[in-house]
Write a protein that binds this DNA or RNA. Structure first.
Lengths: 139, 139
DNA sequence: CGGCATCCGAGTAGATACTG
DNA sequence: CAGTATCTACTCGGATGCCG
């Protein structure tokens, strides 16, 4: 199975050279990539963003039902972080009972695009990964 | 700042519809995306893969120096997982002292490509995210 | 050199109960 | 409805020491 050409490898190496070249020592320690990625690639955050890409607007309890297995504590934490980083917006309506709606910002949508790329790649290869893992276990 | 067009949103929604449509209830609970992503998006694993994309072959101690701040315990754990999932290969040379070399598989390179896309996106917007976060704190 | 075994501390997630 | 508060359980990372 040839998943990638040598040509692609060369191109990847060039991009990496550019990226790593720009980083100085301080950045290696602080590393914004790690910082931003740590949040955005959190398993719950990913699902939240994907669902908000699928359903344009969702309320708190709706989200909790969609994102299977998440607790209200963790959900509210993640929503607060995702809002503070600019991925989604929170609108509160002072009705009785209260209504709060979440939706992606334009920035969130631009991240969603990247996320979709990644999940497409994953759904293509996840079976291979699982199979590989099982084979490795048996040894 | 218009980071995304309505047209792109529509295309994203279509892809999501296809993805979510294929998932049945069991998959929502088990969720291979979450499973594969959880590993591949681990902050240490990402750096390991990026460095192995930059330096084609690295030994254990070399990796530990590159991946700033990682402990040998965590490094060896991550390497074992990444190997078992097929992202990288491990070659042992029975010399004295022993020599072990790690490098990406073709599969690992194909993931590296996705990762580079993502880090490029992040380096473009990480300043915005940090700024957003700071603004949110002040309120 | 390339790890593994062990211990320990901190952070995190989940369950539950409660409130504006 | 949309969370917060609290407590517990558990995982995870770091440090250290040792070994083939």
């Amino acid at each position: 199975m040839k998943t990638i050409t040598d040509n692609q490898k060369v191109r990847a190496a060039k991009k990496l050279k550019k990226m790593f070249g720009q980083m100085d020592r301080r950045q290696m320690e602080y590393c914004p990539i790690r910082d931003v990625m740590a949040l955005a690639s959190d398993k719950w955050s990913i699902l939240i963003i994907l669902y908000l890409g699928y359903y344009p607007v969702l309320r708190f309890n709706q989200l909790q039902k969609k994102v299977y297995g998440i607790s209200n504590k963790v959900l509210s934490e993640r929503l607060k972080i995702l809002e503070s980083d600019g991925y989604l917006s929170r609108k509160m309506y002072a009705e009785v009972p209260i209504r709060v709606e979440y939706q992606l910002t334009d920035f969130g949508h631009s991240y969603l695009d990247k996320l979709i790329d990644l999940t497409e790649w994953i759904t293509t290869y996840s079976d291979d990964v699982i199979a590989n893992r099982a084979k490795y276990q048996r040894q």
